[in-house]
Amino acid sequence: MTIQPVLEVDAVTKYYGSFLAIQDIHFMISKGEVVGLVGLNGAGKTTIINLIMGFLRTSAGKIRLFGEPVLPENAHKMHPKVGFATGDMSLFTNLTGRQYFAFLKRAYKLKDDKKLGELCKQFNPDMDKKIKTLSRGNKQKIALISAFMSGPELVILDEPSSGLDPFMQQKFLELINHEGAKGTTIFMSSHYLKEVADVCSRVLFIRDGKLVKDVSRAELESSHGKAVHITTSRAIRPPAQSSLLGHQKTANGYEMSFIFKDSPIKLQQWLCSISYMLDFTIEDHDLESAFSDLYSKDKSEAKNV
């Protein structure tokens, strides 16, 4: 028996007029997965999320939520099972937080306030001031609570933690971990790789409207290592347990960059064994470095995360 994916994005392309926003995007998310979508501003993250929510119509390809095709005219049928929030969500500013939640409660036909109460206790938003008078952080707390208050099966978050202070950001990550552990499927976009890496079981990387990487948390963690840049008088091979970033012949000799993923002692032994060494540098290679490698247009296309 096959498990029905919660979300399927199948060869989706979206044009805005003649502008190609995203191209041939494929991915699936299974029940209980916490998946991050990472990319620079303008990469197409929000377009993908808007298509999944049914705000936009695909130019080509199909999206299915809970096995049903998502189209602007029928997306609402799936929404009782979907929670949604964005970093700059347009909350109804004429209402207070309390009135806003009462509106959502009626919209979702919720019978009790238990979940809402728990979330309010956790985030402590200002409930009695009009939303338009609240700080960005307080508005963001209300947006996040609204995404989870109906106990949805799938939560879609677009840049959810922007505007939160570090303390609240930590609480938000705890909430994602807690909900993920309970089996809620979560799909969130962010340009903070660390935030995504901390909570997601899988990360999708998008660049210029194309999905360039789909990596598991284990693969992400294995991308930690030492970035080595070495100059030698003769061409050499990189050591085992390394990922080559690039190599070229320059006026100074042969330059090569790689990520070494084994122990520092083995790296030291390997460096000592190089007879033609002219120069070398070693830096920590973390997730942010991997992200930079992936998005640096000056570097080659084939990069290992």
Partner: peptide, 17 residues
């Protein structure tokens, strides 16, 4: 323009309603 229609459409509310 202010994003309120999007916020409404994220709810279980059809465009017709």
């Amino acid at each position: 323009e202010e994003g309120y229609i999007r916020t409404l459409l994220a709810l279980p509310l059809s465009r017709i309603k």
